[in-house]
Design a binder for these strands. Structure first.
Length: 760
DNA sequence: AATGCGATGCCTTAT
DNA sequence: GCATCGCATT
């Protein structure tokens, strides 16, 4: 009896085919992760491959983590030496070692979408381009595709020919690149592109990594773009032990450059490739699978395959149309409550999937009212919030003084009386001398006309220099706390006294917790660069916790790769899903991508699927009237149950305005389900300037040098709910408290920030 | 230099 | 519906 006996014939074939290129066409729910993990095990234990020589690439950190865990369980020893990583983190790891070969510093910063936009705004101003005519978003997306096609500004310009528009964009592209380089920064596309450029220009380095990664596996291969394809081809170029897994029917990222040809033409690119299809589905009921097959059948130009299952028939697919999106949300939330109440699973067995993030609002509101735990995945990334970005900008400035964007972000945050005129003068001077912004600040006397501003700038530089010295002595979390303390960041928020400020403070607490988590879980020596890098590459999805009991809400895109017993597909309306854009674009290809998205959605469900839609809903302040989605009509009616229209009339609109929840909550998501209404913070006493963190009192820990709870006590946290105190460790300037929360598990936090309250 | 106001424009989807 | 931006005010 071996671990491979539990696999079906095709799966086993895929596992045993270890040498040469292999394409696994794995339908939804056909056990591809099982195949991949078993394949790793087989390579190590049966083929004697050194774990060190195996590389597995996934798209999300979550998928990587899952695979790592499963491999660990399967393989007795050496599993930790297998590289399991996302494309982006793989590239960062390589670049951190080798990027000096192509003219960057090893402590480069990574720019996210926000940073890119800010930089682009700067670039446009400098090149003299009106951002109303050429939108930053548009420019960035053109540049992104240029990078995906591996076009340098020079090549891009050449390709533009005489086209006035293209030439202008080429100019922008050139300047954008110049500034990125000057800031020692890379954008997301660069991470991949620079790695490819590194390999293409440094054969000996390429060779090193080819030798290192003799066996390569790529998951979700249908979503790779051109650069990723190039990267994989380069790495696998020597040994060609490349195994890719994908499903052309689940290709849903064309909008960000995914090239479906990578999978459709795999056999042409690698002529001796072996192709194996996994068509048995282990996940869904017959009904669900039939519906999925019926929908996807409408797409042309797909690889021929039909998923089948031995699972039972199961329930019919539920469908209801409602008057308004309010009614829809109310029904879904009520239905989940009813079902869980009657013993159909627990909350974590339920997911609500939708096309756009904006749809989550209504559900959130209903969940809060119903007192049901929920979690919204996606939307505004935690690390994209203002307060978080501010503090990270401090860390970035300390870590990489060349990141002008970061320096300029914080130079007057919190307000220090440094105004735009002063900043511009510094900027001009820096530019004239071809040095960085921060560098210019260090030589203030060389800047003309800053008279009054000089002393303020001086103390800013002194502050940063002080932090730079402290990097050596302090842990990252202590450094962060010192930054908050010395800049008075929280004090300022506190002074605002608004509810919004309070939520921002909570987010800062959470940031500190995340730093501590990083320090604890880091495999190597924790470093500032390391933390910033991790932060730059985490998706919200990565924070999903299978052990917590909450309903999950997310977009269809985020749902790929996941499964839930009970699934609700909400907003099944023409104009929403498929989206208005794809309907009006009149391009069959885009519509097919939407259909694949629908296919992905349906196949997430294991036992039961409910589809809902509304006749009218508010979209951007306007009421929109929608017909039921064309995709719904592609499902044979014998698979559907009811289909009756349920409607509750107008009264709901009034409630909305009075609901206190609306005022309490603005942009913050993933709020406590356990205490949404008790937002009182013990911060009120705070306000006497310059209070340090070590003085716990100011932060709501009553007795100086003591806490009002001890190990074993039950406590309540504003965000995490109730839990039991596991341990209290006295750190240098604060207490480190570990709490086992009922809902979200074990968390380590600082007493000064956690504001834990004892419950009797 | 900071604040406050009205106009504007935008959201599909995300590493 | 909401955030962002430019402008005018103090």
């Amino acid at each position: 009896m071996s671990i491979y006996d539990s696999l079906n014939e095709q799966q086993r074939e895929a596992v045993f085919h270890t040498e040469g290129p292999l394409l696994i066409l794995a339908g939804a729910g056909s056990g591809k992760t099982r195949v991949l993990t078993h394949r790793v095990a087989y390579l190590i234990e049966e083929m004697g491959v050194n774990p060190w020589n195996i590389l597995a690439i996934t798209f999300t950190n979550k998928a990587a983590g899952e695979m790592r865990e499963r491999v660990d369980k399967l393989v007795e020893y050496g599993a930790e030496n297998v590289w399991v990583s996302t494309f982006h983190s793989l590239c960062v790891r390589i670049l951190r070692r080798e990027i000096e070969y192509i003219g960057y510093d090893r402590n480069f910063t990574i720019y996210d979408a926000d940073d890119q936009k800010t930089l682009m705004k700067d670039v446009c101003r400098q090149v003299g381009i009106d951002t109303k005519v050429y939108k930053e978003r548009m420019l960035l997306s053109v540049i992104s595709s240029a990078k995906d096609e591996m076009l340098t500004p020079d090549l891009f310009e050449k390709q533009a020919g005489g086209d006035f528009n293209q030439l202008k964009i080429a100019k922008v592209y050139r300047e954008y690149e110049k500034q990125l380089h000057a800031n020692n920064a890379l954008d997301f596309d660069d991470l991949l592109l620079k790695t490819v450029q590194l390999f293409e220009t440094q054969p000996e380095i390429l060779n090193k990594y080819q030798e290192r990664f003799r066996y390569i596996m790529v998951d979700e291969y249908q979503d790779t773009n051109n650069v990723q394809f190039r990267l994989v081809s380069l790495l696998a170029g020597k040994y060609e032990n490349l195994c890719v897994v994908g499903d052309d029917d689940q290709s849903i990222y064309k909008f960000r450059g995914a090239n479906i040809k990578n999978i459709l033409n795999f056999e042409q690119v690698f002529p001796n490739a072996r192709v194996i299809k996994l068509e048995q589905n282990y996940r869904s009921t017959k009904t669900i699978l039939d519906a999925a097959n019926a929908v996807i059948r409408h797409n042309l130009g797909r690889k021929d395959k039909t998923l089948w299952t031995e699972n039972e028939e199961g329930e019919k697919i539920h469908f209801s149309q409602f008057d308004t999106a309010y009614d829809e949300a109310e029904f879904v939330v009520g239905d989940i409550k009813k079902r869980v109440g009657s013993g159909m699973g627990t909350y974590q067995d339920y997911a609500i999937l939708y096309r756009t993030n904006a749809q989550s609002r209504l559900f959130e509101e209903k969940f809060v009212t119903a007192g049901i735990p929920y979690k919204i995945v996606g939307g505004v990334n935690f690390y994209a919030r203002r307060e978080i970005k501010d503090l990270l900008a401090y860390l970035k400035t300390i870590d990489n003084g060349r990141d002008d964007l970061a320096v300029r972000r914080i130079i007057n945050v919190p307000k220090r009386g440094i105004g735009l005129t002063t900043i511009n003068r510094v900027q001009e001077s820096a530019q004239a001398r071809d040095i960085g912004f921060y560098e210019a600040l260090q030589g203030l006397d060389l800047i003309p006309n800053i008279g009054r501003g000089a002393s303020k700038l001086e103390s800013f530089v002194a502050l940063i220099e002080h932090f730079k010295l402290r990097v050596e002595e302090l842990s990252i979390s202590d450094l962060l706390k010192e930054i908050i303390e010395e800049t008075g960041y929280i004090e300022v928020l506190e002074a605002e006294g608004k509810e919004e400020a309070e939520a921002r403070i909570e987010n800062i607490d959470e940031l500190i917790t995340k730093v501590v988590d990083y320090e604890d879980s880091c495999e190597e020596e924790p470093t500032l660069s390391g933390f910033l890098e991790e932060v730059a590459l985490v998706a919200d999805l990565d924070s999903l916790d299978e052990n917590a009991d909450y309903v999950v809400l997310m977009t269809l895109h985020s749902a790929k790769g996941l499964e839930f017993p009970y699934v609700y597909l909400a907003g099944m309306e023409d104009g929403l899903f498929p989206s208005y854009m794809t309907i009006t674009a009149d391009s069959p290809e885009e519509l097919e991508e939407e259909r694949r998205l629908c296919y992905v959605g349906i196949t997430r469900a294991m036992k039961d699927l409910t589809m809902t839609c509304a006749q009218r809903r508010m979209v951007r302040g306007e009421t929109q009237y929608n017909k039921t989605s064309r995709f719904l009509k592609e499902i044979p009616s014998e698979l559907l149950s009811s289909g009756q229209k349920v409607g509750l009339f107008e009264k709901k609109q009034e409630e909305k305005k009075e609901n206190p929840y609306f005022q309490a909550k603005k942009a913050f998501q993933a709020k406590p389900f356990s205490g949404a209404s008790s937002y009182k913070s013990p911060y009120n006493s705070y306000g006497a300037g310059g209070v340090g963190f070590q003085k716990g009192k100011a932060f709501g820990t009553p007795k100086s040098g003591g806490l009002d709870y001890k190990e074993g006590d039950r406590v309540r946290h504003i965000k995490f709910g109730e839990g039991t105190v596991q341990s209290i460790v006295e750190g240098g300037r604060d207490y480190e408290v570990t709490v086992e929360f009922d809902q979200v598990g074990r968390k380590k936090m600082f007493a000064a920030f956690a504001k834990l309250k004892k419950v009797q």
